[in-house]
């Protein structure tokens, strides 16, 4: 199996505080990996480094055997890594359709954006995506009028429109109702058929749902982050049994 993402000895320190500490991680093409960890474990910094928002102090991130150190956020995005933020970040004053069109625009240079023509395939892709995320009836209203759950789905739609090979999804179900959580879970499972995905999650119930949806495929793994490094890695069942994990994370969850 080809490795799409390979991270070695990654350290990020902010004024001496190590948000990530000697972290090793790799992801195979086509895998859906859930990354869990308590608050402050470095989950969001982990995504910041992959997407180029934060530069590593030490170590490297390789995407398809290419180091990402010298690339800016927009270049990394064009290489094929898409990111969904923790709180939905969509363009509020544009319509739902325009949001997806902008993300899916194949010409992202200045003059490409100004002079490039909309191709029929592109328009079909936008229409399809509106269907996939279930926002067809609201395609032409301003994104600021959407509910929180719809905004989450729209941002996932924008992410897919970029046609990335690797999707980084940060807490996609934060603040959603149970029904919406199930919808987003199904959406991610559908996407995992032809994308590599990393899901950062806090909600253990949702992690169990994703694991159950994937069944017992060997690539169905969970990574636990703690204090900036990988505490343990394995299937959901293994992770839940691990005494270290119980101590730092699941244990404290069970208490309340």
């Amino acid at each position: 199996m080809e490795r799409i993402l390979n991270i070695q000895e990654l350290t990020v320190s902010f004024d001496g505080f190590k948000a990530l500490n000697d972290l090793n991680f790799s992801l195979d093409r086509g895998e859906l990996r859930v990354v869990i960890g308590p608050n402050g474990a470095g989950k969001t910094t982990f995504l910041d480094v992959i997407t180029g928002k934060v530069k590593p102090t030490k170590g490297y991130v390789q995407f398809k055997d290419r180091s990402l150190r010298n690339f800016s956020e927009d270049q990394i995005s064009r290489l094929g890594i898409g990111r969904k933020f923790q709180t939905p970040r969509i363009y509020q004053k544009l319509t739902v359709r325009q949001n997806i069109e902008l993300a899916g625009n194949p010409h992202k240079s200045l003059f490409g954006t100004l002079l490039g023509k909309k191709s029929p395939t592109n328009q079909r892709q936008v229409a399809d995506l509106l269907g996939v995320v279930g926002l067809e009836p609201k395609a032409d209203i301003l994104a600021e009028l959407l509910s929180h759950g719809e905004k989450q789905r729209l941002e996932i739609g924008m992410l897919v429109a970029q046609s990335p090979e690797l999707l980084l999804v940060d807490e996609p179900v934060a603040g959603l109702t149970d029904e919406e959580t199930a919808e987003v879970g199904q959406l991610l499972l559908n996407l995992s058929a032809d994308h590599s995905i990393i899901v950062i999650e806090h909600d253990m119930e949702f992690v169990r749902q994703l694991s159950a949806g994937l069944g017992s495929q060997p690539e169905n793994r969970v990574t636990v982050l703690h204090e900036g490094h990988v505490l343990c890695e394995g299937s959901m069942a293994e992770v839940q049994k691990d005494p270290q994990v119980i101590a730092v994370y699941l244990g404290s969850e069970e208490q309340h």
């Binding site: 997407t51 928002k53 800016s72 956020e73 927009d74 270049q75 995005s77 064009r78 898409g82 990111r83 933020f85 970040r89 363009y91 509020q92 004053k93 544009l94 902008l102 993300a103 992202k108 954006t113 924008m158 970029q162």
Partner: peptide, 15 residues
Amino acid sequence: AIRDDEPRVRFSGYD
């Protein structure tokens, strides 16, 4: 989009 959320525009692949 740049006006409303410039850092986000970078993650959509635009400089």
